[in-house]
């Protein structure tokens, strides 16, 4: 049942694909060869490092180390959400809204799964906790950054409509309701699509990995279903929380639309 171990030579063969692609990019003047090589190198180094970190973590399964690791993952995801915004909330809000919503949804969903569903002992067993959190966090991060980006973009573009609705005596939440609904919908589309296509169009990465590593397909499928549901829950609740907090923040105590609370990031 053990997987065939990969040698560095095996990986080098796969890396040839990247070099070939970079070569073609130079030839066709696409200009993406640098980005391609840098991100391939980054992913190699980052994954090797995380492999080492996980090995140490698995050997020393202490709740403090697991918590520390989770916090680092959360902080990086929070920063990632912030830098992906075209217009983001100024000050600590830019970092805080995404990070807080990810914390609320991803951590709650992961702990729920560990305690109630998988039932590991101890509940923070890093072999389960870290990969599950990573998958939920990664997807929630995508949902939240898509949702927030759409919300701030809508508020900027539909400023006059929102202000007209305010002038008609509507509350802030009614005035921005269309944009908020659209933002939450946009944030949830990727996971809804991937659930709908799972197994027919695409074999999800986690399940594929487990099968390659020698798990029986039906066991792999069960874990994939669990992970899909966790991701959907984490993404959906996280996006709702983030978009709702951000929408509130766009208005002041007198329910005025305050686009001066956004700052353009120039990309």
């Amino acid at each position: 049942m053990n997987a065939i171990a990969l040698s560095p030579f095996d990986l080098a063969v796969a890396a040839l694909l990247i070099f070939a692609l970079a070569g073609l990019s130079v030839r066709m003047q696409l200009g993406v060869e640098r980005q391609l090589l840098v991100s391939a190198a980054r992913s190699t180094v980052q994954l090797l490092l995380i492999g080492l970190v996980l090995k140490v973590l698995f050997d020393n399964a202490h709740v403090v180390w697991v918590a520390l690791m989770s916090i680092v993952m959360l902080a990086v995801a929070g920063r990632e959400v912030m830098v992906r915004q075209k217009h983001r909330l100024a000050g600590w809000w830019g970092l805080g809204v995404g990070t807080l919503s990810m914390f609320v949804s991803s951590f709650a969903v992961t702990v729920l799964a560990l305690v109630l569903v998988v039932g590991t002992t101890p509940w923070y067993a890093p072999q389960y906790a870290i990969p599950l959190l990573g998958m939920v966090l990664g997807n929630t991060m995508n949902g939240i950054s898509l949702g927030l980006d759409r919300l701030t973009q809508e508020a900027t573009q539909k400023r006059q409509v929102i202000e007209t609705r305010l002038a008609l005596g509507q509350s802030w939440s009614r005035a921005i309701s269309d944009s908020r609904r659209e933002a939450i919908r946009v944030g949830m589309i990727p996971i809804i699509n991937s659930m709908a296509a799972a197994g027919i169009v695409s074999l999800p990465g986690m399940m594929t990995g487990q099968i390659l590593a020698g798990s029986p397909p039906v066991e792999a499928v069960k874990y994939q279903i669990l992970v899909m549901f966790l991701i959907a829950g984490g993404t959906g609740f996280g996006t709702m929380v983030a978009v709702t907090i951000a929408a509130r923040r766009l208005f002041d105590v007198r329910q005025r639309l305050r686009l001066d609370r956004l700052k353009p990031t120039g990309n």
Binding site: L166, A167, L168, G169, Q170, S171, R254, Q255, R256
Partner: peptide, 9 residues
């Protein structure tokens, strides 16, 4: 504010 804006439109 919404009450004000309904009255002073």
């Amino acid at each position: 504010a919404p009450q004000w804006r309904s009255a002073v439109a």
